[in-house]
Amino acid sequence: MRKNLYRLTFLERLYIPEILRGMAITLRQMFRRKETRQYPEEKWVPPPSFRGAPVLVLEENGVERCVACGLCSRVCPALAIDVQAAETPDPKERYPAHFEINMLRCIFCGFCEEVCPEEAIVMSDAFEFAFTRYEDAVFGKERLLTPVSHVRERLTFLRERR
């Protein structure tokens, strides 16, 4: 093994010049632009490729797209989604009477979005989830329904890339 070792030159074996070189590098770094983002004041806006919290799309006429087929619930690997269907006089005939996503279970894989035939469940750009109570972490319909204008970019991205 020894013959594979890199032979140090005399100056390198003295260590001190090399240490000074290393310290010059760190000194240079001290005056470089800082990469820190002052988080709570200055928030990152994710690009449309970002998979944030899944949301239900609400059409402009105030009706959700979801037809309660239950595919998202079926495909969810973490069993985070719970859907209960009911009938509606609307042309789509079915709607989710009850729709819950447990955000403590969700793993942000985006399978629900991928499997949805109606583009009704979409990964939004929300990424701040801190809960103090279990009930707060289970998102019901009222928290999930999002106007279509909020997720327009993600929908365009999905049509282009999928």
Binding site: T26, Q29, M30, R32, R33, K34, E35, T36
Partner: peptide, 10 residues
């Protein structure tokens, strides 16, 4: 502070 500066942080 110095460790932060060396690592391009604040």
């Amino acid at each position: 502070k110095i460790s932060a500066w060396i690592q391009n942080r604040i």
